[in-house]
Design a protein around this nucleic acid. Structure first.
Lengths: 237, 237
DNA sequence: TAGTGGTCTAGACCACATG
DNA sequence: ATGTGGTCTAGACCACTAG
């Protein structure tokens, strides 16, 4: 079933998120109180609060001292990243899990098309939040030296770039992002469980280290309604 | 001096921040461990961690399990764009001309849908580069106080936000951008001179002044192939 | 006044990084 | 092997909101 290594508070957050996005809780509805969550999940208050913190940071809920916790409005469908820090721009919901479909060594033609040189491992998978419909069909090319094994990447609950930085002495210095729109093909739509002909955001990101080497290249297809890209830019002074 | 009501963890965070920004701790330096902070400030580990969490969220420090906490080598990451100014986000707008189709006062329903309050003028038009096919179907809501007249906006060869800043004493401090994908409807496709059913990037941007007031709201439909969104994010300051 | 979320303590065990 | 940060428990008191 679920990854037993995943912290309890993320599991709880995932569950609550599912109940919110599925409509069990609607915008404006009160969420269970912290003590209620403690009882329901048999967890301490700290764990309940960590779960709620995640949802609050993602803008899914609003908390008010003395009053309670309610579902924020307008966030039932999309997963937005309102903050401006490096990781949150790139990620889907914090708990989005990579579900591996396929893993092979990238062939020469593919690499040439992507302007990559060197050896790369190609992972194909879905990004899911809880057991909801996938938010993305994801293809990731990882430089061979940094590639995780299949067991590691499957059910990875963070970004691949974050995993690489934690496990290898490399630092991503720059990300180039390219976004356009496409209409999904039949096979893609099937994997994502949407009708053929649905529109999707297509993103391609190149993650480079200080030397300009592409450590990671990620291509994603996000069907409309499951994902939208949000960011805030502040003016430089 | 210090607000005595302020939570202890914020006081600690404030103190640590001061030590970092004053240069007592330099980028790459290890910060005191959690236990060391507990002793130094006579606080529990929870309180120390809350303080560190604040600094980590602000991008001032980096934490790695097992390794420790160090001062980050850049301040919070910003979106580095080639030119470093707002115009670069608009990309097409720099060389694209706004061709006015329609101009009316926005009605109450429309404003409510967009969460706008106050009076706004709604301009509909195409963005063209030279006499090529249009790169966008554009709807712009301008706060009444700043709205250009029809003659001015038609064939405007810059962004509307730039025009506003040049002609009114207002400064855009923040832009919130939302991007998703759609399939064009017949009337939209016709205007853009593409087949019905073409995919398009849909962007919505809110331009706010220092007070948070939405000065300008722009919605665009960019047909695939004519426009793609590219940006580069750098980790360093 | 009762109940909520906010802050805080004092423990504990674990995963991970480094020597 | 040691020490770090990550997770988690079981308490407590306080600030605030609402009936």
């Amino acid at each position: 079933m679920d990854n037993r290594d995943e912290p309890r508070y993320r599991q709880v957050a995932k569950q609550l998120r599912a109940e919110i996005t599925s409509g069990d809780f609607k915008p404006g509805d009160p969420l269970p109180t912290e003590m209620a969550l403690c009882d329901e999940y048999t967890i301490s208050r700290y764990t309940a609060r960590e779960a709620l913190r995640i949802l609050a940071e993602d803008g899914l809920i609003e908390r008010r001292q003395g009053a309670g916790t309610i579902v924020a409005d307008g966030s039932a469908v999309t997963f937005a990243s309102p903050t401006g820090d490096f990781e949150s721009i790139l990620q889907y919901a914090r708990e989005a899990t990579f579900v591996l479909i396929d893993s092979i060594e990238a062939d020469a033609d593919t690499l040439r098309d992507l302007s990559l040189s060197g050896r790369y491992r190609k992972f194909t998978g879905l990004r899911r939040v809880a057991s909801q419909a996938p938010v993305a069909l994801n293809t990731v090319f990882v430089a061979a030296a940094f590639a995780p094994d299949n067991k590691t990447i499957d059910h990875l609950a963070e970004s691949v770039s974050a995993w690489i930085e934690r496990h290898h002495p490399v630092r991503i210095e720059e990300i180039e992002q390219h976004i356009d729109a496409v209409v999904l093909e039949k096979s893609q739509a099937k994997r994502l469980d949407v009708p053929t002909g649905t529109a999707a955001l297509r993103t391609m990101r190149r993650y480079r280290d200080a030397a300009g080497k592409v450590v990671l290249l990620s291509k994603s297809l996000h069907p409309t309604g499951r994902f939208a890209y949000t960011m805030t830019m502040a003016r430089k002074r």
